[in-house]
């Protein structure tokens, strides 16, 4: 089966600084064990850590979280070791490179890395929410594979950016229609 991979190397530095409106939502964290520093609003979780949020699902072995409190709504979460994240990529509004038609499909991302940092803070009326993914960072959808060190996912724009940013478009997604395609396994 003919498979065609197109590798697009984007600019080596493309840090995202755009301000976004991240959606609100409840976040649940499950783990085997937990430690809570009540004075500093900080929790540490160990063993089978799982984070569920309307925007993403994350699993890892170790996680530390600064919790919101009083007027401080900021959040900082550090996940370490065997980090796996499933992100809701929203509606794919991009255009098919061959057909020229909008893809217009729900997009899901499967992310793996050694480390991930979730940051959420509000400045005035603007909310910033990002996930910074480090260490063998790799994000895969049914159409493309993205790598970078780090990769940064913006929960407002639902786009990746980062250093040494590489996008690998899976071959079958270049053909008209793009159906009956099996994902191409690629390694940058």
């Amino acid at each position: 089966m003919k498979r065609l991979c197109l590798i697009i190397l984007l600019a080596s530095t493309r840090w995202l600084t755009a301000q976004t409106n991240a959606p609100d939502g409840r976040t649940d964290i499950h783990a085997d064990q937990g430690y809570f520093d009540m004075d500093h609003y900080r929790t540490v979780y160990e063993g089978h850590v799982r984070v569920d949020n309307p925007e993403m699902k994350l699993t890892c072995a170790w996680l530390a979280a600064d919790l919101p409190h009083n007027n401080n709504s900021g959040r900082h979460i550090l996940a370490l070791t065997n980090v796996v994240i499933d992100l809701d990529g929203g509606r794919d509004r991009s255009t098919n490179l061959v057909s020229g038609l909008p893809n217009d499909q729900e997009q899901k991302w499967h992310v793996t890395s050694d480390q991930a940092v979730y940051d959420y803070h509000v400045a005035g009326t603007v909310t910033n929410a990002t996930v910074t993914i480090n260490g063998h960072a790799r994000a895969e959808s049914d159409k493309v594979t993205v790598t970078g060190e780090p990769l940064i996912w913006n929960l407002g724009t639902r786009q990746f950016s980062g250093n040494d940013y590489t996008t690998i478009i899976k071959g079958d997604n270049l053909s008209p229609g793009g159906t009956n395609a099996s994902p191409t396994s690629t390694h940058p």
């Binding site: 609100d24 939502g25 409840r26 976040t27 649940d28 964290i29 499950h30 783990a31 085997d32 064990q33 937990g34 430690y35 809570f36 520093d37 009540m38 929790t43 979780y45 979280a65 919790l67 919101p68 709504s73 959040r75």
Partner: peptide, 14 residues
Amino acid sequence: FLTISNQVHTTINS
């Protein structure tokens, strides 16, 4: 300082 040994569950409401 609190240590929870099993089945920890945290809910953060925004």
